[in-house]
Amino acid sequence: MTAASAPISKRRAGEALGGLAVADPRPRIVDGRVAGWRCGACGHAVAQESPWCPNCSAGALTPASFGPGGTVWAGTVVHLPVGHWKPPFALASVDLDDGPRVLAHVTETRVLPVGSRVRLVGGTQESGASAGDGNDVFVEPEGSGS
């Protein structure tokens, strides 16, 4: 296969990856911050939907927002096509300030250094040669963009 051709799958790939629609599990940016939850009992921050606090199992989760500032846990540049994302595109795992760790597309196609400061943004930014579908989380290196 050529580098840019979309992978074929018999698996439930989802609309964004060329399959049928599934309910979107991705964290979202709302009003410029990552929308998640925080436990009322232990204070644990979560980015993924959960039935109750996965840390203490006791507390109820209430909506909370995090970031947009954070620190890179690790970054990479992917050279495979994945769904509508054409290679190369960059991803980073980011620890939001006082918030959860989230995966985000990087607006510049380079490996973001571990420990570097970043800011998360929403919208339909570009990651490599592709743009998001409006529901992706993007990361901008600090000092870039607007």
Partner: peptide, 12 residues
């Protein structure tokens, strides 16, 4: 191909 029902999988 990543799993579309998974948060990181859906993100690509």
């Amino acid at each position: 191909v990543p799993e579309a029902t998974d948060a990181d999988g859906a993100a690509g």
